[in-house]
Amino acid sequence: MRRSTANATRMAGVHTNVDGAPERSASGLGQACAEEICANGGNVAILDMNSEAGAELVARLPKGAARFFECNVLHTDSIAAAVAGTVDWIRETGKPLGGVVPAAGVATPATMLDRNGDALSMDDFDFVINVNLRGTIDLVRQCLVHLAKSEPVDDDGERGVVVMVASSAAFDGQKGQVSYSASKGAVAAMTLPMTRDLARYGIRVVTVAPSLFESRMTAMMSSKVKRSLEGAMEFPRRAGKPEEFAQLVRHCIENIMLNGTVLRLDGGMRMPSKM
């Protein structure tokens, strides 16, 4: 029998991010995902640079349901060590490796030419691309080596799912978001080819593209900027809640027919050119 909705999240997964980023696995959207999965009987390996925040989150989750591993997605060796530790821990839990949620994300706003006519910094551009895009693909590829060797969990031969995080900026980025939009647009664009690459292994790929959500990023916004963005929402006219993001991630895990697609989670929002 295929996994039922009730027990689809009863497996081990990997959630990662990078310290200092707007979104981290130990807070905000990442924390909500970890809580949602653990609340439904799953285990979560939390990969982050902030060991203090990671330890605090593990302590709040059901005992034995989560484990923290220090990880910097800018460095392949750091990812490799965290993945190796995760795989060893997952074997101890007795649950199958069920997937990975690579959510590392940073934003360094800058226009192509600044007010003095100086060009966009390539160092800033490379940093955003390396975290948001390269960090995502590096973590995913290293987890897939193990996921593809796991036993299928149902009669369809499914082994697990990759749930990537893009952004509404992938489709309608604002002024100053060239780097961020490029990185998130690339994540969205590689969803289908990755799906086709992994079909033979019974591994699905889904990408969620959220708009304005309550997070570390929105917490740093001025009230004026936040109101302007909320004004672009159709309904509801508010920022999304972390648990609403986590609910969709859980559905991506549970619904086997979700594959090769990018799901906008944006309240009908289309970003204006500028705020």
Rank of each mutant, 00 (worst) to 15 (best):
A6L: 09
N7Q: 15
N7Y: 13
R10S: 11
G13C: 03
T16D: 12
N17Q: 07
V18L: 15
V18D: 03
S25L: 12
A26P: 12
S27M: 09
G28T: 03
L29V: 02
G30D: 02
A32V: 02
A32Y: 02
E35F: 06
C38K: 00
G42A: 01
V44H: 03
D48Y: 03
S51Q: 15
E52Q: 12
A53V: 08
A55T: 11
V58M: 04
A59H: 05
R60H: 06
K63P: 15
A65N: 00
A65D: 02
E70Q: 15
N72T: 12
N72M: 08
T76G: 14
D77F: 07
S78K: 09
A81L: 08
A81T: 14
V83T: 08
V83E: 03
V87H: 11
D88G: 07
G94M: 10
K95H: 13
K95F: 10
L97R: 04
V100M: 04
V101N: 06
V101C: 09
P102F: 01
P102N: 07
A103E: 06
G105F: 01
V106I: 14
V106N: 01
A107Y: 11
T108A: 13
P109M: 09
L113G: 12
L113A: 12
D123N: 12
D123E: 15
D123R: 10
R134S: 11
T136W: 07
I137T: 15
L139A: 04
L139T: 06
V140P: 02
L144G: 01
V153M: 03
D155E: 08
G157N: 09
G160T: 00
V162C: 04
M164C: 10
S168K: 07
F171C: 02
D172L: 04
V178W: 06
Y180I: 04
S183A: 14
S183N: 04
K184I: 09
A188Q: 00
A189Q: 09
M190K: 08
P193E: 08
M194W: 05
T195R: 08
R200K: 14
R200L: 13
Y201P: 01
G202A: 13
V205W: 09
V205L: 10
V208A: 04
A209K: 00
S211T: 03
S211P: 00
A219Y: 02
M220V: 10
S222A: 02
K224C: 06
K226I: 06
K226P: 02
S228C: 09
S228E: 05
L229G: 00
L229P: 05
L229T: 02
E234T: 14
P236I: 11
R238F: 03
R238H: 00
K241D: 11
E243H: 08
E244R: 05
Q247E: 11
L248C: 06
L248M: 05
V249S: 00
C252G: 06
I253R: 10
E254H: 13
L258M: 11
G260C: 04
G260D: 06
T261Q: 11
V262T: 00
V262D: 00
V262Q: 07
G267K: 00
G267R: 05
M269A: 08
M269I: 08
S273K: 15
S273M: 15
K274M: 08
K274L: 12
